[in-house]
């Protein structure tokens, strides 16, 4: 069964057609890369899957359950079990690294002892266990990116969406972090939808590539 299924999705923003009749299935455990130029509707597609906006036409299914339909968000974002790494990382500036991760687990009602253990393990996985008390502003770009990744994964979601998370980093760091993302995905086994306009990142990360242009899908295939 597909982890995510988009059925005839159309979306207008401020009267402008952004996505037109999109049909897409993402298999469980896949690393799907959405590739396309700026303004082609990649981010809007992620926001639709996350449940921040509703489609104007069509339906969205996650794990077989309908989560959005035309003009309506059926399942709100917090009940979709999704992790999201934002383009600007969106680390909460008034919270330490530990608190950034803790908020996610606390919102799910996890007991304190279990939270502590889970956060420790997650920070070890991304190589940040010594920086848990730092504030986001005290971290380098690469460290911030790893915190954002840890926060998206700490609740062990089955689906993780990433919106050009490496775009602000230099080439070496990007390559290093792309490898780390692949490793984490293999270890944890989540389904990943990764948005980029960078072909090199696509080559490193994708098991499935979807090419978008002007709000439509121009190509969809497994990576050889």
């Amino acid at each position: 069964m597909a982890e995510v299924k988009l059925k005839s999705i159309t979306k207008y923003l401020d009267g402008r057609l952004v996505l037109k009749d999109i049909d897409l299935e993402i298999e469980k455990g896949a690393r799907l890369v959405l590739l396309g130029p700026s303004g082609c509707g990649k981010t809007t597609l992620l926001r639709l899957i996350a449940g921040f906006i509703a489609p104007d036409e069509g339906e969205i299914f996650i794990s077989g359950k309908m989560v959005s339909k035309a003009g309506e968000i059926v399942v709100p974002p917090e009940e979709r079990g999704i992790g999201f790494v934002f383009q600007d990382l969106a680390l909460w500036p008034h919270m330490s690294v530990y608190k950034n991760l803790e908020f996610v687990l606390k919102a799910q009602g996890m007991p304190k002892a279990k939270r502590k253990e889970r956060i420790k393990k997650m920070l070890e996985m991304v190589g940040l266990k010594d920086l848990s008390s730092r504030m986001p502003a005290q971290l380098s770009g690469g460290q911030q990116q790893r915190v954002a990744l840890a926060r998206a994964l700490v609740s062990r979601p089955s689906l993780v969406l990433m919106d050009e998370p490496l775009s602000s980093l230099d080439w070496d760091l990007r390559a290093h972090l792309a490898k780390r993302i692949c490793k984490l995905q293999e270890e944890i086994g989540f389904t990943m939808v990764y948005v980029t306009h960078d072909r090199e990142e696509t080559r490193q990360l994708a098991t499935q590539v979807v090419v978008m242009k002007n709000g439509t899908i121009k190509g969809n295939g497994e990576k050889s």
């Binding site: 921040f52 917090e78 992790g83 999201f84 909460w92 919102a107």
Partner: peptide, 16 residues
């Protein structure tokens, strides 16, 4: 920044 709220909305309801 809207994404700060969006990041939180993925795991918590509006009051929190």
């Amino acid at each position: 920044n809207p994404s700060l709220e969006e990041a939180a909305r993925l795991c918590a309801k509006w009051p929190l």
